[in-house]
Design a protein around this nucleic acid. Structure first.
Lengths: 207, 207
DNA sequence: GATTGTGAAGAACTTCACAGCC
DNA sequence: GGCTGTGAAGTTCTTCACAATC
């Protein structure tokens, strides 16, 4: 299998999510153009992305949704269950904690952390909650691979450093702070202010 | 001023956020390498990005933070105040509603919408809250340019269509559903499951 | 030594265009 | 007509490399 370009991986991940929804609504096949409309890409890009997969396909016919989904999942190794932990149990943190949708995707929030003992005792959750100082040991013992940072921005870099020391493989940073990590750690930022800024800048550029 | 590449705009938006933080901590100057470390880019990329700005600069000396910030803000038109509205007042929606940090960036959440009259009456907020059917008229009358969708995923496309009809300029989609919009509308997705999937796929690719 | 600025080279990604298939 | 698959072309973005400055 050829190396899949990074943007293609992101799109294929999105296509996977789309296929799940189509499948639930009972649709069996889909064209590259239809997929493109949904993920905001051209049909050529969609076909090229799919061509990176090891999927055999008959040209001239729409994609079989179940099959395409299987190959994306397989080649991107999306089926591999992964454990994540949540650091910071404020509004966003607890909203994520309460979200039920991860499990069916193979993700498990395996632990939550906060500096406040009070919060840890008050919050009702299936997930086991701990004080920050236990972060490194629990990541190791539970085999957690992804950390989701939802702390106040001031604490983000410090938490990221701790996660890196604990040999985390990926970080999703939900704070407004930019966080730097070694090259081998995957990082994505989810920052509402940042997105507003980017969308705003792009709106201005359009004119 | 040359056309700024899209990825450069995104990075410059991030650099802007970084500079704000550095400024607050009292630092006056910064190098391209330092910036790069913080936004996970190379120093050459940072310098190239900055070179797209109309900023005059003396080579050989670190960037003056206040000046750089001014030029990014000016050239990307980040100072332009913009109004956004929030659709869907569930956990994430209300968390965003309660967030205080937008104002100092020039963003205003000018209205909130939900299908539930109950929610609209119960939620305590400075922001004026309305039923969905008022969406189009209020966007028009208030001059709202950005819509933040926080509804259940099933409703996302429908809301997006309404926003497009109301001539929205940008959408931030915080649902797990992929949403399609005409090319002229800027759209960014914030989907935690999607990010987990992408990070997971990238972790697998690394090996 | 440090730094920036930038044309040129290189790499990465997207689109085209058309053969082949239904 | 529809569709996919894919090498080639085109475009966009990143990195290099080095002059210039401090």
């Amino acid at each position: 299998m050829k190396k899949i370009p990074l943007p293609a991986i992101e799109r294929l991940s999105n296509i996977y999510g789309l296929l799940e929804k189509l499948e639930k609504s009972g649709i069996k096949t889909v064209s590259s153009t239809q997929i493109g409309k949904n993920i905001n890409a051209t049909n050529a890009t969609v076909r090229k992305d799919i061509s990176y997969l090891s999927m055999p396909n008959v040209a001239g016919r729409d994609y079989d949704i179940a099959k395409l989904k299987k190959y994306i999942g397989q080649d991107l190794k999306l089926f591999q269950p992964r454990k994540a932990c949540l650091i910071g149990l404020g509004r966003i943190g607890t909203a994520i904690l309460a979200y039920e949708g991860f499990k069916e995707e193979g993700f498990e929030i395996a632990a939550g952390f906060d500096v406040s003992l009070n919060k840890i005792e008050m919050i009702v959750s299936q997930v086991s909650l701990h004080l920050i100082h236990e972060l490194e040991s629990i990541i190791g013992s539970k085999g957690i691979e992804i950390g989701i940072i939802c702390t106040p921005p001031e604490a983000a870099q410090d938490i990221a450093n701790k996660l890196v020391r604990a040999k985390i493989k990926g970080i999703i940073n939900c704070t407004t702070a930019m966080v730097s990590v070694p090259e081998e750690v995957i990082i994505r930022n989810i920052d509402y202010t940042g997105y507003l800024r980017i969308v705003s800048a792009l709106i201005s550029q359009k004119k």
